[in-house]
Amino acid sequence: MIIVTWLIAFIQALLIAALAPLLIGWVRKVKAWLQNRRGPSLLQPYADLRKLLVKEIRVPHTASPLFRASPYIVFVAIWLAAATIPLVALDLPTSRIADIIVLVGLLALARFFLALAGMDAGTAFGGMGASREMLISALAEPAMLVAVFTLAMTAHSTSLVSVIDHHLTDGFLLRPSYLFALGALLLVALAECGRIPVDNPATHLELTMIHEAMLLEYAGRHLALMEWAAWIKLLLYGVIIANLFFPWGVAQDFSPLALGLGLAAVLFKLMILGAVLAVSETALAKMRLFRVPAFLNLALLLALLGLLSHVILEVGA
């Protein structure tokens, strides 16, 4: 049984890495439709990855060994974080490795190396990207943690599995704290994944880039890993939002039927979320950098309101 669960966990981890480009392809496709374009194929991100993986690697003269190690560290940390979230099934052994605070920690580890890699080549763009990324993360991380604390305090646990389990067995209760936390997490996810209105993943306009500025010196396999890691991160946030707030359909046992249903459910939820993201990216414009703190303060405020409404209104009720 243990072998089976580990096997399922391993397959799920592979599935997350495999699905991430598809989600990006879907978001791009919907955006293209909204802009009255046909857009590239859904599978285009896979082709991009394949192309980058076999291309020659170029490294700046000024870069240290850390520059070459960072893509691997970033990729592994984000993938590991993604492997611990319940994508299809609950209660896998990998979920016990890390609770939600460890997950945030792993993402922070990846960001740390991403920012360092940006500064390593010694150009102005890298430093700019790193500085802005750390500003945004410094404001987004507390909002993220407070939002998940709300859920964790409801379920009396920081383990994602327990939170989802609690939600499933508790039945559907429209808790105000959940709504606030959902709002906060959506804003945080936009900021952390570098989406519009915080950052524009499609831009290479020097003065507005954040994530792209840190990757500017990367090429070939290194760039592929960095891009892939960013896509996995988007998928990870999508799965967290989908499965924490709309947990229906997640497999609670390991029968093939339940697993298949779980996969179909999560794919459906991600499809909806991706479409919502595409619509919001089409409707909104990117903000100035110094408007971002206000945006993230709103997230923190929502999260705190959620937490306070939980401890004041819902505890003991």
């Binding site: 740390f112 750390m134 993360s137 410094a138 507390p142 943690l145 407070v146 604390f149 705190l304 937490l307």
Partner: peptide, 20 residues
Amino acid sequence: PIASAVLALTGALVAATFVK
């Protein structure tokens, strides 16, 4: 929980400090 939010903010700012 507000104290823990401060702790979370602190943690993220420490990361920014040491990246710098």
